[in-house]
């Protein structure tokens, strides 16, 4: 019998090891799995490489993981936020390295990694500083850059609804990177606001099929990052 449920967020992230590469879903606060990230802070894994579009806001969620000193490298497209100095401080002091990747290239690198494609060519960033050191090739009179697929040891994402097999449905623009990160993670860990039995999700409407998911834990009322930040919350 397949049952991918874990009793709580603590059990869900228990396997994350020091030095792991971790993909974390979300675009801004939409889709950010805050409860899983906080459990990862409690769990203690360090020297992590984190792949996520942003670097969190305030001092909760991803920004709190950074502030706790657990992240040695960020791979992201937009690390600036109006209300957080956590990443800028770490970056300027050299404590956290940054690999800046255009957002579409980041998405396609993740998709490729999950789909078994080691590398691909893209027109994005040709002629810019982000092309430095990259192999280029001309197709049909246009230059393209070689970009490599990305995979991760663990992926942490948030879903609106999951079944116990790991089929997932998301909420609005919270979907963003989660379906492709689920594909690219060796172990994909999901926090779902609703947990249902197999058969309760319409097969026509499943966004992430269960084969891409390893652990599911029920987090019925996930916090919203903007509300935590507005309340001045910090973690731990």
């Amino acid at each position: 019998m397949i049952d991918k449920t874990r009793a709580n967020v603590t059990e869900a992230v228990a396997e994350v090891f020091d030095g792991a590469t971790v993909m974390i879903g979300g675009f801004g606060e939409a889709g950010s799995p805050i409860e899983l990230i906080h459990a990862l802070i409690d769990q203690g894994a360090r020297d992590l490489t984190v792949i996520s579009n942003n670097c969190g806001s305030g001092e909760v969620g991803l920004a709190a993981l950074l502030k706790a000193g657990r992240v040695s490298k960020m791979i992201c497209s937009f690390p600036r936020t109006a209300n957080s100095t956590v990443f800028p401080d770490l970056y300027r002091s050299g404590k956290t390295k940054l690999e800046l990747v255009p957002q579409g290239t980041l998405a396609e690198r993740i998709r490729a990694g999950g789909a078994g494609i080691p590398a691909f060519y893209t027109p994005t960033a040709v002629g810019t500083p982000l092309a430095n050191g990259k192999e280029s090739r001309r197709f049909h009179d246009r230059d393209y850059l070689l970009e490599y697929g990305l995979t991760a040891d663990f992926t942490l994402i948030k879903a609106k609804r999951a079944d116990t097999h790991g089929n997932l449905v998301y909420n609005k623009t919270a979907r963003n990177f989660s379906p492709i990160m689920a594909m690219a993670g060796q172990v994909t860990i999901v926090q779902a606001a609703e947990l249902v039995s197999p058969g309760e999700l319409d097969p026509e409407a499943v966004i992430t099929p269960e084969i891409f998911v390893d652990h599911v834990t029920h987090v019925p009322n996930p916090a919203h990052e903007s509300e935590l930040v507005a309340a001045g919350a910090t973690y731990p």
Partner: peptide, 28 residues
């Protein structure tokens, strides 16, 4: 508004009739 219905500037938006959601790889 819904904190999970936002635009690229991370501000809350709405949808129009006929709208669709998709993941980042499809968007790009």
């Amino acid at each position: 508004g819904d904190p999970e219905l936002i635009n690229a500037g991370k501000r809350q938006v709405t949808t129009k009739p006929g709208a669709s959601y998709f993941h980042q790889s499809d968007s790009f």
